[in-house]
Simulated assay, not measured.
Amino acid sequence: MTPSSTAPDAGATNTYSTAAEIRHAIRPWFDDFLTSFTLPLSFPELSLRFQKNIYTFRGNYAVISLLIFIITLIFRPFTAIVFLVIIVGWIYLFFARDEPLVVFDFEFGDRLVLISLSVITIVAVAVAGIWSNLFISILIAALLVSLHAILRTPDDSESQYGALLSVVDEDGPSRGAYMQV
Results as ranks from 00 to 15, higher is better:
residue 124 A to M: 14
residue 8 P to R: 04
residue 179 M to T: 12
residue 50 F to L: 15
residue 132 S to H: 13
residue 19 A to R: 15
residue 56 T to Y: 14
residue 63 V to I: 14
residue 7 A to Y: 12
residue 103 V to M: 15
residue 73 L to R: 08
residue 141 A to G: 03
residue 107 E to L: 02
residue 97 R to V: 01
residue 42 S to C: 15
residue 65 S to H: 01
residue 139 L to F: 13
residue 87 I to L: 12
residue 61 Y to N: 04
residue 83 F to L: 05
residue 151 L to I: 06
residue 134 L to A: 08
residue 163 A to L: 09
residue 155 D to W: 03
residue 61 Y to W: 04
residue 54 I to R: 08
residue 160 Q to G: 15
residue 140 I to F: 09
residue 128 A to V: 04
residue 24 H to Q: 10
residue 80 A to W: 00
residue 99 E to T: 14
residue 30 F to T: 11
residue 144 L to G: 13
residue 73 L to I: 03
residue 80 A to H: 00
residue 96 A to V: 01
residue 98 D to R: 06
residue 148 H to S: 05
residue 44 P to D: 07
residue 129 G to M: 10
residue 74 I to P: 02
residue 172 G to K: 07
residue 9 D to K: 12
residue 142 A to M: 07
residue 36 S to R: 09
residue 9 D to L: 15
residue 60 N to P: 03
residue 13 T to K: 14
residue 138 I to E: 07
residue 58 R to I: 10
residue 113 V to Y: 11
residue 104 F to V: 11
residue 157 S to M: 11
residue 166 S to V: 05
residue 176 G to T: 07
residue 134 L to Q: 01
residue 163 A to P: 00
residue 160 Q to I: 10
residue 90 W to K: 09
residue 74 I to G: 01
residue 31 D to I: 03
residue 11 G to K: 01
residue 32 D to K: 11
residue 132 S to M: 14
residue 62 A to E: 01
residue 163 A to E: 06
residue 45 E to A: 08
residue 136 I to Q: 06
residue 17 S to K: 08
residue 76 R to D: 02
residue 58 R to T: 07
residue 164 L to W: 09
residue 56 T to K: 15
residue 164 L to R: 12
residue 138 I to L: 13
residue 167 V to R: 10
residue 76 R to F: 11
residue 62 A to L: 13
residue 80 A to R: 07
residue 116 S to Y: 07
residue 41 L to S: 14
residue 180 Q to S: 12
residue 50 F to S: 06
residue 99 E to Y: 13
residue 153 T to W: 09
residue 70 I to Q: 11
residue 22 I to C: 09
residue 136 I to W: 09
residue 14 N to E: 04
residue 102 V to E: 14
residue 60 N to A: 04
residue 8 P to L: 05
residue 56 T to L: 11
residue 175 R to S: 12
residue 39 L to T: 14
residue 113 V to A: 06
residue 130 I to F: 11
residue 46 L to H: 02
residue 45 E to C: 13
residue 59 G to E: 00
residue 39 L to V: 09
residue 20 A to V: 00
residue 129 G to E: 08
